[in-house]
Structures are given as structure tokens and as C-alpha cells.
Simulated scan of single mutants.
Amino acid sequence: MSSVLHITNGDSFTERLKKLNLDGDIITWREMLCEGKTLTNVGSESFWKTRFEFLNKNYKVSKSWFIEKTLKEYRSLCNHKQQDHIVLWFEYDLFCQVNMLAVISWLLTNRKYAEISLVCSGNEDDSNKLYSLNDLSDEQLHTLYKNKKILSQDDTEYADYVWQLYCSNNPIRLENLTDFNEYQFDYLGDAVKTHLKRFPSIANGLNEMENTMLRLAMDEKPTSKTDFLETILSTQNNLGFADTQYNRAIERLKPLFTNLNPVKLTKKGKEILEGKTSYYSCIQDNDVYLGGALKYNFLYNTENDRILKL
């Protein structure tokens, strides 16, 4: 009998997985590497120092919380050295796909002997809906597990390569990737496209997510900030963000709202949304990273879906 280690995408699914009574231990990957600066050497001292600084500054994460929740779980992963089969449980969205790349990169360095399998939810029926793992029934999860994809060395090395590019200081190299469908990552190509659209647009200095938020504010006329957040969460495509990320985005865009109860845009907010003026010079910040790249050192051209370096 081979021993199994499951690595999950978060605490809520870990609790769910425990109830499925599958063989093996479970480790939760508690990170959100789609936000803030990332370094290629996953698990190194410099990697965790960089991550703590970002989380502490932007989400008020205390050192004790970070040690207790993230580092202790990571150390537990380090101590699981016996399993020769590792199963990754992740989802289709950007949040999950970036974490998945980092975990595979770490495994490639630290668990060379292990067979790595991937269970990834997304397209589960004939509808256009993309499903999270927690959206699925126990029966569906058992079926996904039974049909898990065993990753070849080519697959894992490709995931590590994409991770290196994500952590590089130039997203144009990511943009030039076209061979996603040659590997067993059904949702990685779309996740990379979603990532690139997080750079500010040439049109008005806001990225796709920020423009969507302004448009929802104007079209849906939310009656409160809570209503606004619910609207955003129910209409986000494949970012996979939670209200914490959107709350932070609302704070950044606050000058463009006259009010959040009800939600109303300023005159400038409407002009930016209509492309009559740009918010680039107002929001430019030299300390905002997307992976390894500075967000405001690049512009996204929505007309040809290309990145430009400033």
C-alpha cells in the first residue's frame, strides 16, 4: 500500500475532505500568492519574509497569526516525508492556480520521488458554470478523485516554469506562453490571461477588475457596501477572490465614490469609466506587485490583449 498526502486549497475544503474518509493525511496550503510580491524559491526564509511583509502591511496579519496558521502548516508539510503519492486539490480560478503552481514548484525541489496527482474542479457539466470543490456533492468529489490526473515530469516541470515566469519582473514573458494545452492543466491558460488583465489598462489606468467594480456600481446601484460586495462576488469571473480582496480594492478606489451607502460614483469616476480621463497618475504606486512584477510599470492594451512596458 502506498501512503497518500492530500494538499488542499483552503480550510473550508479541508474540513469537507475529512468527511470523505479517503486514505491519507491532509495539509492545507494557507496562502494567497495571487496577491503581493512572490519569490521563486517557495518555502525559503526570504520567501516567507516577503509574504509576511505583504500580508502584515495590507491585511494587518500579525506575526503570531502568520506563524500559527501559515508557517506551522508549512512545517507540517515539510515533516511529511514518507508519502510517495501526493494529491493536490485545487480549483479553476486564478487564486487557486497560482497557489497550485507554487506547491508544484516546491514539490519538484523537495519531493522528487513522489507521484503527484491533481484533482481540479471547474467544468463539471454542460452548463457554462465553473464549480468550486465545495460546490460539488460527495459523489462528484469521489468521481473527481477517482479520475485524478497523474502529473508527468513534463507537467510538473512546466508548472514550475510558469511559476518562475509569474515571479519574474516582466509579465510579457508570461504573455508569450501558448502551449498550455500540451499539459494537464485545463484552467492554467485562462488563469494566466486573467492575471495579465490585472495590469492597468491603457484606456483609463484601471485594470479589468477595477473597471468591472465601477461599472457594477453605476449599473446595479447597490444600496450599501455589503450589497456592493455581494454583487461583485456573484459576478466575478475566474479571479477566485473573497470579500477581503475586494474590500481592499474598494479602499484603493475610494476617491471615485461619493458614498458607499448607497454606492455612488463621483463625476471623475464616471468619466474614468467612460474613458474620458485616466486614473493612472492618481493611483500609481511603486510598491504594488503582481507576482514578481511591479503593477504600474506595465500597461494592458485591451484592443489587442497585449502588455506594454513603460
Score class of each variant (00 low, 15 high):
171 P>G: 10
259 N>L: 05
284 Q>N: 09
285 D>W: 08
78 C>F: 03
290 L>H: 00
66 F>C: 07
166 Y>A: 10
184 Q>K: 15
114 A>I: 10
150 I>W: 03
133 L>Q: 08
236 Q>I: 10
77 L>T: 06
204 N>E: 04
193 K>I: 01
117 S>A: 12
307 I>Y: 00
179 D>K: 06
179 D>C: 11
119 V>Y: 02
61 V>Q: 08
246 Y>C: 11
23 D>N: 14
214 L>D: 00
160 D>P: 00
282 C>V: 05
55 L>Q: 12
114 A>N: 07
9 N>F: 04
33 L>A: 01
263 V>G: 02
10 G>R: 08
307 I>S: 05
40 T>E: 14
118 L>T: 08
166 Y>I: 12
260 L>I: 14
282 C>N: 11
248 R>D: 14
226 T>M: 09
2 S>P: 11
287 D>T: 13
232 I>Q: 05
99 N>I: 03
121 S>R: 12
162 V>K: 02
236 Q>F: 12
27 I>W: 10
211 N>S: 07
246 Y>G: 11
141 L>Q: 09
234 S>Q: 14
179 D>Q: 13
256 L>Q: 08
28 T>W: 05
92 Y>Q: 00
239 L>Q: 09
60 K>H: 15
173 R>I: 11
37 K>V: 06
123 N>S: 11
225 K>H: 09
306 R>L: 08
255 P>T: 13
37 K>W: 07
276 K>V: 04
66 F>L: 12
266 T>C: 15
273 L>A: 07
275 G>W: 03
291 G>L: 06
93 D>F: 02
57 K>S: 15
246 Y>D: 09
65 W>L: 09
86 I>H: 08
132 S>T: 13
180 F>M: 12
29 W>Q: 13
17 L>M: 12
177 L>D: 00
39 L>K: 13
18 K>W: 07
34 C>D: 01
11 D>G: 14
17 L>E: 09
292 G>H: 06
257 F>N: 12
211 N>H: 07
111 R>N: 08
288 V>P: 00
105 S>C: 13
199 F>P: 00
240 G>T: 01
71 L>Y: 00
246 Y>N: 09
253 L>V: 02
46 S>V: 09
15 E>S: 15
288 V>Q: 08
128 N>P: 06
72 K>R: 14
123 N>Q: 11
214 L>M: 06
153 Q>H: 12
177 L>A: 07
60 K>Y: 12
159 A>I: 10
125 D>V: 13
228 F>Q: 02
187 Y>H: 14
272 I>Q: 01
48 W>Y: 13
292 G>M: 02
216 L>W: 10
152 S>Y: 08
151 L>H: 07
209 M>C: 04
10 G>I: 04
113 Y>D: 14
198 R>T: 04
256 L>P: 02
38 T>V: 15
281 S>P: 01
31 E>V: 10
231 T>Y: 06
217 A>K: 03
123 N>P: 00
201 S>P: 03
68 E>G: 06
172 I>V: 14
304 N>Y: 07
200 P>S: 12
272 I>R: 05
